[in-house]
Design a protein around this nucleic acid. Sequence first.
DNA 1: ACTTGGCACTCTCGGATATAGACTGCTAAC
DNA 2: GTTAGCAGTCTATATCCGAGAGTGCCAAGT
Lengths: 351, 351
Amino acid sequence: MPQPVRQEDLDPRALSLLKALVEQYIRDGQPVGSRTLARAFGMSLSAATIRNVMSDLDDLGLVRSPHTSAGRVPTVQGYRLFVDRLLKPQPLGNQETEEIKQQLFAQSSHSSQDLLESASQLLSSLTQMAGVVTVPRRDYAALRQIEFLPLSGGRVLAILVVNEREVQNRILHTHRDYSSSELQEAANYLNSMFGGRNLVSVREALLRDMLNARQSMDQLMVEALGMAEQAIDPNQKKDYVLAGETNLMGFQELSRVETLKALFEAFERKRDLLRLFDNCLGAEGVQIFIGEESGYTVLDDCSVVSAPYTVNGQVVGVLGVIGPTRMDYDRVISIVDTTARLLGAALKERN
Amino acid sequence: MPQPVRQEDLDPRALSLLKALVEQYIRDGQPVGSRTLARAFGMSLSAATIRNVMSDLDDLGLVRSPHTSAGRVPTVQGYRLFVDRLLKPQPLGNQETEEIKQQLFAQSSHSSQDLLESASQLLSSLTQMAGVVTVPRRDYAALRQIEFLPLSGGRVLAILVVNEREVQNRILHTHRDYSSSELQEAANYLNSMFGGRNLVSVREALLRDMLNARQSMDQLMVEALGMAEQAIDPNQKKDYVLAGETNLMGFQELSRVETLKALFEAFERKRDLLRLFDNCLGAEGVQIFIGEESGYTVLDDCSVVSAPYTVNGQVVGVLGVIGPTRMDYDRVISIVDTTARLLGAALKERN
DNA sequence: ACTTGGCACTCTCGGATATAGACTGCTAAC
DNA sequence: GTTAGCAGTCTATATCCGAGAGTGCCAAGT
């Protein structure tokens, strides 16, 4: 009775053969046959021997042939094993590191929004795939200043200056009209209390203070706190920056118009994509979803390589690359990793 | 010696035959043969006669057959003649007008930005093609209020409230730090002088006043005016709102991946597209570019139907639709026209 | 002078057929 | 355990063929 074959049983030779096969396939996209592989492997083994090994890999579900008489193509599991165990991540070449640095640091006078766009463009142009960067969570940004301006019709314009650079504004609806001086007073109070603290802690403090203030009956203070509460409501649309979707059009793997259409519509809808990337916020370093692993059927023939980026040790966003399953993981991983690190540094510098 | 044939020579019968042909082709996208056309035309003429007429139309360059034994397809000139002389624009059906009204007016509490997005979505969903709306020129919007906030490092945050709804902010670099009260004073002065006037006239007044103030040596006033000048600099990025690019993917006319890719890249680059639409700002009503008429090779197989929209008689932006040359011009023209009118009305209401 | 029916000719499209090339799996020998 | 060789399988490509659609032209009819 034959033993069921398991991945652990794979001897080093089979593994390195798998590695060669995946690399070969990544290079030229054609199913790899035994002859080709023998040549790529250095002629130390005959094609026939390789056929035997490939048959084992096939049984394990690591490779498949699209039809009887074609070569073998890595399956999702094959890629998985490849990236997990066969790929020694090696640091990016100096040349490319420099390029990334230049793009991110060299430009003068741009807001962090521009920085994210640069990063996205960078990922896209370096990998020739689609680059995605989710915008940093503002939750941990430092509140510099808050101001209110009176508008007509019981509305107040709230302005938050965050990180000395970014400005958010929001229109609040209030029960009555306020005069400039009332609003000024409220703003002064809030600035002195909360200036310099991050938005999360401001929010906590706000909620606490509101209770106290309500008891002490200082009406204006209650209202000021209420307005501030509204203004820093964290339910802002999260968003993302995307570049190079059109690069995806070049890959014949994805070229059935149907698939592409679905993919672009997903980009248009944003939500799914955002959720996928949000899931990466928790992870430590580079994360890789291969094919259906992402859980989104639209991305079935795509892989996603992502990494969170941090400012002062706080994870503030995620960036990554979306491309066909058959991508140069080695290179892409390095690029994503480096870009994440450098983007974090660049953001820190600007705050 | 045969007379060279000219469009003016076309008798009414030939024209109405051309009309039938174009309409037929728009309907089902197949080259139209003499038999089909005879049937569509009501059997009052035989196929052979129609063949003769079609031959004339061919000589005039109004129709072409893709190959010897296919029917005829309208050329760019054919479409041109069709839309210019054969199409009696008829008002949009009540049902669709209602739909547009609802989408634009019904939604509560949205900024004009949202309104533009609605319009773009609307165009896209109604026509199943790509909808484009350029953002209104702010030049003629009324300045409600201007405020300054001090930042560190010789920077000042300027906030413009326009139209009671929209807020723009900009960081200005100044020679020295200003205190809150100085800035407050400057803002008060500017608000009392310019509040309620549109940005163009504010700008004019500013430049004039700067000369006077410089003479009277009121330093703060000079600086206030200088800051305001910076803040309302009209060289803002113009931008546009786009919806439904993916709709274009459905048309087999555009389905060579190459063409599509170029098209999407054009969307990504924006500039060309923006220039095309900017050219429409001057025109009176609906404008139509067929195929290469647009002057942008990327749009060679596309037509553009656009119309400027106005607020208080002032043209503030352009909207339109991009789709394959073979589109239902009759319908699209009505939709674009109506949407432009209603968008103008909706914008006016919100100001 | 148009209009019409008829006919030969042309060109495309779809399906069927043949062929070359690329692999595999198996077997038997090393 | 490895290898060479061979039969068998499958794809991709080219080629052919017939059906269908449509034109252009001619000769006859109005």
